[in-house]
Amino acid sequence: MSRIKLVVLDMAGTTVADGGLVEQAFGAAAEHLGVEPGSADHAEKLDYVRATMGESKISVFRHLFGDETRAQQANTAFEEAYGSLVDAGHIAPVPGAREAVERLRGDGRRTVLTTGFARVTQDAILAALGWQDLVELTLCPADAGGRGRPYPDMVLAALLRTGAADGVREIAVAGDTSYDMLSGVRSGASVVAGVLTGAHGADRLTSHGATHILRSVEELPDLLAREGR
Rank of each mutant, 00 (worst) to 15 (best):
117 F>D: 07
164 A>E: 15
144 A>F: 07
77 A>Q: 03
47 D>N: 08
25 A>V: 04
108 G>Q: 01
196 L>W: 13
99 E>W: 02
147 R>D: 15
12 A>N: 15
156 L>H: 02
52 T>M: 05
229 R>Y: 15
224 L>N: 10
33 L>G: 11
32 H>A: 15
120 V>F: 01
132 Q>P: 00
140 C>N: 14
107 D>S: 03
62 R>F: 09
94 V>M: 13
37 P>N: 13
211 T>Y: 06
52 T>N: 08
171 I>K: 10
22 V>C: 06
62 R>T: 11
51 A>E: 07
62 R>W: 05
209 G>A: 04
92 A>P: 01
5 K>M: 10
39 S>I: 01
111 T>G: 02
195 V>S: 00
229 R>A: 15
108 G>E: 01
175 G>P: 05
170 E>D: 10
216 S>G: 11
64 L>K: 06
184 G>F: 13
97 A>G: 02
48 Y>A: 08
86 V>W: 12
79 E>G: 03
136 E>Q: 11
19 G>K: 01
121 T>R: 03
123 D>M: 08
42 H>Q: 06
4 I>M: 14
97 A>T: 02
25 A>S: 07
113 L>R: 00
213 I>L: 14
58 I>W: 14
99 E>D: 12
161 R>H: 06
127 A>K: 09
120 V>A: 07
228 G>H: 05
122 Q>C: 12
43 A>N: 05
108 G>R: 02
47 D>H: 08
32 H>M: 08
63 H>S: 14
40 A>F: 10
66 G>A: 04
174 A>H: 13
93 P>V: 02
147 R>F: 13
106 G>V: 09
110 R>T: 15
103 R>A: 13
61 F>N: 04
9 L>I: 11
90 H>Y: 10
108 G>Y: 02
101 V>G: 09
34 G>E: 08
205 L>M: 08
136 E>W: 03
85 L>Q: 03
105 R>C: 06
46 L>I: 12
157 A>F: 04
114 T>G: 00
27 G>N: 08
82 Y>G: 05
223 L>S: 10
137 L>V: 11
84 S>R: 14
73 Q>P: 00
83 G>C: 06
199 A>P: 07
167 G>D: 15
175 G>L: 00
3 R>S: 04
85 L>T: 05
184 G>K: 03
212 H>Y: 15
147 R>I: 11
136 E>K: 01
4 I>H: 08
92 A>W: 12
224 L>I: 06
171 I>G: 11
118 A>M: 14
64 L>C: 12
194 G>N: 12
95 P>N: 05
75 N>R: 01
96 G>Q: 00
121 T>N: 11
15 T>P: 04
99 E>S: 01
228 G>P: 09
3 R>V: 06
12 A>G: 10
48 Y>W: 14
207 S>C: 03
19 G>D: 15
170 E>G: 02
128 A>H: 11
197 T>C: 12
54 G>S: 04
9 L>N: 07
169 R>P: 04
184 G>L: 14
66 G>H: 07
164 A>C: 12
117 F>V: 10
204 R>Y: 06
